[in-house]
Simulated scan of single mutants.
Amino acid sequence: MKINQYNPTPLKAYSENRVRESADRTQSQSQTTAPSRDVVNVSSQARLLGAARQTATESSDVREQKVKELRDQVRAGTYKPDIRKTALNLVREEVDFLR
């Protein structure tokens, strides 16, 4: 018996077997995971918020100039809101809510 002689056949069979097992494992995983699906549940509050955002995005900015003027006033420190008018609007909204 020669010790220096190398026979690659047993090693080749082992490596081919590992490749087959890996391919079989990958195929079986893809078959078992394919039918399952992810499920997402959205609350009614989230749906309402999404609808509100979509409506706001689609609406035209009619008061864009007014908002720009107010933003400039706030940045300059010259914005002086009418506190009496704000209070009256808040009270009116509460009264309308109670009706």
Rank of each mutant, 00 (worst) to 15 (best):
P10G: 02
P35R: 00
G77H: 01
N89K: 15
V19K: 14
V91G: 02
A23K: 11
E93C: 05
S28Y: 05
L70C: 07
R53I: 04
S60I: 05
M1E: 10
V42H: 01
E58F: 03
D96K: 15
R84S: 09
A52V: 05
D61I: 03
A13E: 12
T78P: 02
D61M: 10
T57Y: 12
A23N: 11
T86M: 10
L98C: 07
A46D: 14
K2G: 13
E58S: 13
T57R: 14
D61L: 11
R53N: 15
S44W: 06
N17H: 11
R84Q: 13
S60V: 08
R47D: 09
Q29L: 13
M1W: 08
S44F: 05
L11H: 08
G50S: 11
L49Y: 08
R75S: 11
T26S: 11
K68T: 07
K85Y: 02
S44D: 14
Y6E: 05
E64F: 09
D82P: 01
T78A: 03
L48V: 06
V95K: 12
P8N: 01
P81T: 00
G77A: 00
K85V: 03
T9F: 03
S36H: 02
T33V: 07
S28K: 12
G50W: 02
R47G: 04
G77C: 01
N4Y: 06
Q5D: 14
A23W: 03
Q45L: 12
S28G: 02
Q45T: 12
L70M: 14
Q65R: 15
P81L: 00
T78L: 02
K66F: 11
V42Q: 02
D38C: 04
E21I: 06
V39T: 10
G77Q: 00
E58T: 09
Q73D: 11
S22D: 08
A23H: 06
E69R: 05
Q5M: 09
D82S: 01
N7A: 01
V62L: 06
P81H: 00
D72I: 02
V74L: 10
S36Y: 03
I3K: 15
N7K: 02
T33D: 09
